[in-house]
């Protein structure tokens, strides 16, 4: 029974596709399961994966947040350019970035939860405002990373060297934070009543209200959480790149949303798991990072990513349709 359910789930299919893709790449190039390639994949995976957690919270309630790249960029650029002289403790940088993210997230949350405005439009607005402030007020440009953060960025857990090519890749410390955040996301969604509330709102807002959930509070929380995490991740991203690229994250929102949907998070709300979203992101990362190992030109990567998104979402949509048909049959048989 449980095995059957597992086999039918979106997560299972995505995992299967990842596995097949990895095998194909390995067979063609022999380079996939090498230490440095795996480290590279994890490196590329970590930042978008963290964004996935915040985004999936929002999507499960039936909303969408497209402002996190802007929030991340703004807070990243602000702390790196303005606090360089003021502080030396890297924690302080993170704290300020998180506060900026929290403020914008709260603004999103209040407007969306209080006035029930469409989340897409509101976050599109705050996104534009954040980029505007960054470019206009702080005159954003490529910027060298300040010392305290640079030290943090140069720290590594371990490094892996490819014996054939001699290339070395470092596992960044940020991976630990990713693991913590993923666990936190999983814990909130599955083990707390807050998490049940998030699913409940996505299922039926009115019913959630009648059940006694604090709908306003929960919505406020998820947008604030998404914003706060975006601030943190923004600074983390700059430590990994060892420089501040203000426009580096632009467009990330679409990849993250696509990964969530691919992993079975329902756009209309109510459904989705942390595992699914992460698998979706993993698939997109591997396609993005490793197609070159298959001898496919980088120009075609975008085409592949697009195709995978369409095929993946179509597959889960068809799954839903098949279930509906089954329900009709069940009703029919029940009537006999």
């Amino acid at each position: 029974m449980n095995l059957q359910k597992t086999v039918k789930s979106t997560e299972f299919y995505v995992a299967l596709i990842i596995l097949l893709l990895c095998m194909a790449i390995q067979m063609k190039s022999g380079q996939f399961f090498t230490g440095n390639n795996l480290v590279d994949v994890v490196r590329a995976f970590s930042v978008p994966a963290m964004f996935c957690i915040g985004e999936m919270f929002v999507i499960i309630t039936g909303g969408v947040d497209v402002s996190f790249p802007a929030i991340a960029s703004l807070s990243m650029f602000f702390v790196c350019s303005e606090l360089e002289e003021v502080a030396s403790n890297p924690l302080f940088f993170f704290l300020v970035a998180m506060l900026i993210g929290l403020a914008v997230g709260l603004l999103n949350g209040v407007i969306i939860a209080r006035f029930r405005f469409p989340a897409l439009i509101v976050t599109l607005g705050t996104s534009s405002i954040c980029f505007g402030i960054m470019q206009g007020v702080f005159k954003s440009r490529e910027y060298p990373l300040c010392e305290p953060l640079k030290e943090l960025g140069e720290m590594k857990l371990f490094s892996a060297t490819n014996p054939v090519s001699g290339l070395t890749s470092n596992m960044p410390v940020a991976v630990i934070l990713m693991i913590v955040l993923v666990f936190l996301g999983w814990f909130i969604l599955n083990r707390t009543m807050l998490g049940r509330g998030i699913y409940a709102i996505g299922g039926d807002v009115k019913a959630a209200q009648r059940s006694g959930f604090n709908v306003f509070g929960i919505l406020l929380f998820i947008y604030a959480f998404s914003g706060c995490m975006a601030g943190l991740i923004g600074v983390l991203r700059s430590t990994m790149l060892l420089a501040v690229h203000p426009n580096n994250l632009e467009g990330m929102e679409m990849t993250v949303i696509a990964a969530c949907v691919l992993g079975g998070v329902r756009m209309t709300g109510g459904k989705g798991s942390v595992l699914g979203a992460l698998l979706g992101m993993a698939l997109l990362t591997i396609v993005d990072n490793s197609l070159i190992l298959l001898g496919i030109s980088t120009i075609w990567q975008k085409v592949f990513t697009g195709a995978i998104i369409i095929i993946g979402t179509a597959a889960s949509a068809m799954q839903t349709k098949r279930n509906e048909r089954k329900l009709a049959i069940k009703m029919n048989e029940g009537g006999k």
Binding site: R196, G197, A200, A207, S211, G212, G270
Partner: peptide, 19 residues
């Protein structure tokens, strides 16, 4: 006033748990 996306168990128990 049910939650279509949750299980029967959660639907039955959630009001009590929130209360």
């Amino acid at each position: 006033s049910l939650f279509p996306n949750l299980t029967v168990m959660e639907n039955l128990a959630i009001n009590m748990e929130v209360a």
